[in-house]
Design a protein around this nucleic acid. Structure first.
Lengths: 221, 221
DNA sequence: CTAAACTGTGTATAAATTACACAGAAAAGA
DNA sequence: TCTTTTCTGTGTAATTTATACACAGTTTAG
């Protein structure tokens, strides 16, 4: 019953399989959290909306593959990304066996114009409560990505590129409220995020804003 | 500058790469947390101690690959396992490009005798503070696995197979103290774990133990 | 220069966490 | 069998953390 070593050790002729990456790109737009989806032009799942995704090319890391995929499908570049999970069910893709590493990204859509590339029939931002029917197991990937996003935001203040280099605490709070989908008390919110020790008051004030709010930055970044 | 669709879409001839899995098997033995390592019989890293690991075979999920690898190298079977992270650096393996999905497992060594298989020169439990020099990037994998283990234990009471079906709160606390590497107050510990709502008092007492401690079980398992 | 909209702050209350001690139950040993 | 030892189970006071809440000062808009 014991199997041979060739079954587990890495050899030149070891079984290989295609690696794909999918990326849930979240954008904060008009005060609400949205998700970027593409519409497929070709089978499988032609016409369905999906997370942007694709194969990892030779010599690339999965992180580099995510960058390449996003550029090729949506025109997006320079996206902060976090790894979510590896999905390896055998029948995830109808054409051939693939393993998928999923990521999420966080961007400010104003800084990242999306440019539909020729091999997709649509690229659009969707409100999270108005998602269309999705292909593959992408509902699950989105759910998992959103959970990780929330815990990264709340516990580690990981906000990707949603904030400019210098920002006000109100801008930060608005973000929190949209991402976590709940209203927060201003004074308590400030106490909480400041005592994490990740923020520094620049001593400068934002001009052109009522009240003259202080500008903050992230300390270790 | 825009790349062609063939670079990202899944096709029959899409680039493929070997998938490996590594598993940090933690065991709770003699009141202390240990890690199971194997010693390699062949290059690369011949003679080095490593996490048990190996390739994913055709038609298997990564979870199944972990099971197969553990059986083939250590004789272990039926191990609770949790996915940790996917490592995709291009030069992780000297023989060829591989992508590694890492897992951790938690077992009670008394229930799982380890049987050195013929293609490894050693299989041993090591105390975490007495780990030998390790091959590959396994120091990093262990660090990441241990972090996830701790947060899974503390937040979600995920204890794998370290506990029998029915156990006393003292047994649970001893586990916590070993896994988290700190001393806990008995009364406060009880309040905390009980209010998670994951445990049920069976109403029975453990026989053969002083004090006649109550036996508990996990509710949803 | 007045009105409107925003910022920054402190305190009292509630909730959660921590520190701490003793009586009862079972086993071990005389 | 009874005395000692070792373990279990529990409550409360003190501290820390989280929550609810209001007003005076600053800036833009008109």
């Amino acid at each position: 019953m014991a199997q041979d070593i060739t079954n587990v050790s890495v050899t030149k002729d070891a079984y290989e399989c295609t690696i794909t990456v999918d990326c849930a790109v979240f954008g904060f737009q008009e005060g609400v959290l949205k998700l970027l989806l593409i519409q497929k032009l070709a089978e499988p799942f032609k016409g369905f909306w999906l997370l942007p995704g694709g194969i990892m090319q030779e010599g690339k890391t999965t992180e580099e593959a995510v960058k390449s995929v996003l550029l090729n499908l949506t025109g997006l570049k320079n996206i902060h990304q976090e790894q979510v999970y590896c999905y390896s069910d055998v029948n995830r893709h109808p054409l051939k066996r693939v393993i998928t590493i999923s990521y999420y990204g966080l961007i400010n859509p104003e800084n990242h114009p999306i440019i539909k590339q020729k091999h997709v029939s649509g690229v659009e931002w969707f409100r999270l409560d108005e998602l269309p029917e999705l292909g593959f197991d992408h509902e699950q990937l989105i759910k998992d990505a959103l959970n990780l996003l929330k815990s990264n935001v709340e516990e580690r203040l990981i906000l990707g590129e949603l904030l400019p280099a210098r920002f006000t605490l109100t801008e930060l709070q608005d973000l929190f409220e949209a991402l976590l989908d709940k209203k927060l008390d201003r004074r308590n919110f400030r106490k909480k995020v400041l005592q994490k020790g990740l923020l520094a008051n620049t001593g400068e004030k934002k001009v052109g804003a009522k009240g003259g709010p202080d500008l903050y930055t992230f300390l270790n970044k």
